[in-house]
Computed example of a mutant assay.
Amino acid sequence: MPLAFVLDPAVDRPLRDGLLDLWTDVSNADGAVGFVPPVTRETVRPELVKQLVAMAEGRSRLLAGFDEDGRVAATAFLTFNTHRLMRHWLWLYTVMVHPRHQGKGYGRDLLAAAADAARGIEGIEAIRLTCRGGLGLERFYESSGYKEVGRVPAAIRVAPGDDRDDVVMLLPLH
């Protein structure tokens, strides 16, 4: 059954708890979403609060995918670029699909829904995101229409002696 995607869902306690659980579970499944396992909900909470503040201030929008039980199963944050010369594109951050739903095509569905959402925002012409090298994520994003446009070698230190490239991907919306 496909996920139901909602742009700008009402932020209530169940949504906040669902986001926190999703981010924690994805991180602990070795997902490249800003943490290295193991993490707890309390480790992730400050980053979620930052995202919620950005949403409240209108700097970011949440795209959430809900499963058939109404649980948060996938997310992406569409974050506006504040530089006056770069307001024609936005960042896509924290792209996640819950481990129990991976392998069902929901990641591609999430990226397609994010592109549709971005196309609905006046003046937005492209989406940029970064991903951690060494995990095959570039191939996944490329299969969804993104192109690699930059790479910073060894920019992400996962652990001592384990540095990964920071890969910049772009999706033109026209």
Rank of each mutant, 00 (worst) to 15 (best):
A118Y: 03
A112Q: 06
R128L: 15
M86G: 14
R71H: 05
C131N: 09
T40Y: 07
G70W: 01
G107I: 15
R59T: 14
T79A: 15
G136I: 10
A29R: 11
N28Q: 01
L22A: 00
E125W: 03
G65K: 00
T24I: 00
A32C: 06
Y93F: 07
A126M: 00
R84I: 09
W23K: 11
C131Q: 05
V72Y: 07
G134C: 08
K104N: 15
Y106W: 10
F35W: 15
K104D: 12
R119F: 00
E68Y: 09
W91C: 04
V49W: 04
D21Q: 07
I121F: 09
A113G: 06
A64Q: 05
P14L: 04
T79D: 14
A64I: 12
K104S: 15
A115V: 00
M96V: 11
P38K: 07
M96D: 12
H98V: 02
F80M: 14
L15P: 15
L78A: 12
G105L: 07
G120M: 05
N81A: 04
G134M: 08
E122W: 07
W91N: 10
E122K: 08
R84N: 03
V95Q: 06
R71A: 09
F35Y: 15
F35P: 13
A29C: 08
G120Q: 04
A54D: 13
V97P: 02
L48T: 08
F77L: 12
G70I: 03
A118H: 03
G31E: 06
A73Q: 07
A32M: 05
R87I: 01
L52I: 00
Y106A: 08
M86R: 14
A76T: 06
A64T: 11
Q51E: 10
L48P: 04
V49Q: 10
N81G: 03
R16W: 03
A29F: 10
G31A: 02
A112Y: 02
E125R: 05
R59L: 15
M96W: 12
V33W: 07
E57K: 13
I121D: 10
D25S: 08
H88E: 14
V11N: 00
D12V: 02
D25A: 11
G31N: 04
R128T: 05
L85I: 07
Q102E: 09
A117G: 09
L22G: 01
A115P: 02
G136D: 12
W89F: 05
D17K: 08
T24K: 01
R41M: 10
T40V: 01
A56L: 15
P37H: 04
L111Y: 00
V97K: 01
V39G: 00
P38F: 15
H83G: 10
D12K: 04
G58M: 11
P37F: 05
G103F: 01
R13S: 05
A113T: 01
W23D: 06
P14M: 04
D116Y: 01
S60G: 11
G105M: 07
V53N: 14
F35G: 11
D67M: 06
G123Y: 10
A117T: 07
P99R: 08
T94R: 15
